[in-house]
Amino acid sequence: MAKKVLIVSNSADLHVDLLIPILQAKGCAAFRLDLDAFPRDYQTSQWFAGGALRQWIRHLPSGVTLDLAEVGAVWSRKPAPFSFLSPDLGIQERIYAGAETEQALFGMLYTLDCFWMSHPLALRGAMWKGEQLQRAARMGFRIPASLTTNSPAEVKAFRASIDGPVIFKALSSPNLGGDGLADGDRVACGIGTTVVDDDMFEQLESVGELACHFQQYIPKQYELRVTIIGERVFAAKIHSQDDQRTAIDSRDMSADILYEATVLPDAVRERCLAFARSYDLPYSALDLIVTPGDDVVFLENNPVGQFLYVEQLIPEFAMLDSLADRLIEECA
């Protein structure tokens, strides 16, 4: 029996929208589990009896049922809050329903002895930015001087130790907790990487509210987005210094800057692969800086980082095809 690909994400994930037709065209069936519609639009069963395990997931709107014994590969993409049949659950009911749903779902998925891109336990282990910096330094990357603290005195000492500007950036998300919130519930649009000016330093007492992340600003010649799919490395050279809007934070997509394919030096390529492998990640997206002196500086790793925008700007990368091929290869 041909194995299938299980994709765990949410209904707004364009990456999944585009990947499924590619898998189907290559002769591989895929089952999509949208967490923002789960368990509302699904039924599940996990049955242990006589030393055997039977488990399935059924998508109610389509009537399609997936026998988990048929799963050969899992693409674990993006999380989302669960949805329930009753939209008016009380606070305690919703907390309990969420905890029970998580236990039921992942108690099933974690039984799958198959290929994961990437396993949730590996993803969680790879998400901590402070640990990433330590690991990157140990593996030979240059990293910026960095400080994470809720002590205003530490920030003052850090600034005094730095020759040049200091930047602030969020550790979790630049959207300041607004991901998934309705427009009416969102009180701030977010903040990108920001140079800390004198006015901001005069408000340092606010750092005492929660830990903030500061780094030495590294002058850039250009930036690199390095996407790893299996053993394939796709390096995008980002000409972020060509526009003032992207000079500090290249994520401003309103700026029409050049993205082009480039080839990494062998040592850098192998270091990127080794970094992803060290977390047991078959997929990863690293952000690097190349300085005017051609030094390569590690910024961060994104275990489920977006890649579609890079493929749209550099179509020859064909990363969707490569990802589909990797999943199909593991289903064979």
Rank of each mutant, 00 (worst) to 15 (best):
A2S: 12
A2Y: 13
D13K: 01
D13Y: 06
D13R: 01
L14Q: 09
V16A: 10
V16M: 13
G27K: 12
C28A: 09
L35H: 01
D36N: 07
R40F: 11
R40H: 09
Y42P: 12
Q43Y: 03
L60R: 10
P61R: 00
G63C: 07
V64A: 10
L66F: 10
D67W: 10
V71N: 04
G72N: 04
A73G: 05
S76M: 13
S76C: 12
S76P: 03
K78R: 12
P79S: 09
A80Y: 05
A80L: 00
S83V: 02
L85Q: 09
D88A: 01
G90A: 06
Y96F: 11
G98L: 04
E102D: 04
Q103F: 13
M108G: 08
M108C: 10
F115M: 02
S118H: 01
S118Y: 00
P120Q: 05
L121F: 04
L123E: 08
R124E: 06
R124G: 05
A126Y: 03
A126N: 04
G130T: 11
L133M: 12
A137S: 07
R138Q: 06
M139I: 11
R142V: 07
S146K: 01
T148D: 01
T148I: 03
A153F: 06
E154W: 04
A157V: 02
V166F: 09
K169L: 02
K169R: 13
A170M: 12
L171H: 06
S173V: 12
P174C: 12
N175L: 14
G177M: 10
L181T: 02
A182S: 07
D185F: 15
C189T: 08
C189F: 08
C189I: 05
C189G: 13
I191D: 03
T193L: 14
T194E: 03
V196W: 13
D199Q: 10
M200I: 07
M200D: 03
L204G: 10
V207K: 09
A211F: 09
Q215D: 08
Q216D: 05
P219L: 08
R225E: 14
I228W: 03
G230F: 09
A235C: 14
A236M: 10
A236L: 07
A236S: 15
D243P: 09
Q244K: 15
R245Q: 15
D249C: 11
S254I: 02
A255L: 15
D256V: 04
E260S: 15
A261K: 06
T262Q: 09
R271E: 09
F275A: 08
F275T: 14
R277Q: 06
S278N: 07
D280H: 04
Y283T: 00
S284P: 00
D287L: 01
D287C: 03
L288Y: 04
L288Q: 00
G293H: 11
D294H: 15
V296C: 02
L299W: 01
E300W: 02
N301T: 10
L313G: 06
L313Y: 06
P315A: 02
E316L: 03
E316M: 03
F317E: 01
M319C: 06
D321G: 10
A324I: 05
R326K: 04
R326F: 07
R326C: 08
I328M: 11
A332H: 13
